[in-house]
């Protein structure tokens, strides 16, 4: 893929065009990541990134807990077709995580899905520190 037609070679430089938006967005993404319990943010980034880019994966995380496996299952269905994230799948998530944790996880999923696709479409490398993939 070629680079962003505006000449931006990275997500950071692209977002810097809208500095007023980039700052609150970066704060929201950082807060979301921080509020995700345990390793879930990193696991989400790794799995979503793997599914979209074909790179990386979950091997570095070793054996996943049942709760982490539920996060992966929701992440995979969320990416493929959010309509398929059904009551049973969400019940697996909410059985292990509080409502506040579940919201943070779902926000992380949305960011990972959206920004990984954005980078892919724009031909941008992953350069977001603490990134979404």
């Amino acid at each position: 893929m070629t680079g962003w037609p505006g000449g931006h070679a990275s997500e950071a430089s692209l977002l810097a065009v809208r500095s007023g938006l980039a700052e609150p967005l970066a704060d929201l993404r950082a807060q979301t990541r921080h509020e995700c319990p345990g390793r879930t943010a990193a696991i989400i980034d790794a799995r979503i990134g793997q599914m979209i880019t074909g790179q990386g994966g979950l091997e570095p995380f070793g054996e996943l807990t049942d709760a982490e496996q539920a996060v992966v299952a929701v992440a995979e269905q969320f990416l493929l077709d959010a309509h398929g994230v059904d009551d049973a799948l969400m019940a697996r998530l909410t059985a292990s995580y509080t409502p506040a944790e579940t919201i943070a996880i779902m926000f992380q999923l949305a960011f990972a899905d959206g920004f990984t696709k954005l980078r892919r479409v724009m031909g941008l490398p992953s350069d977001h520190q603490g990134g979404d993939d």
Binding site: L21, P24, L25, D27, L28, T32, E35, P99, I103
Partner: peptide, 18 residues
Amino acid sequence: LLAHHPGLAVAFGSTYAN
């Protein structure tokens, strides 16, 4: 639902408004 996470609610509102 977002009110479960007031910090995220504020950050989301700021981003969305911008």
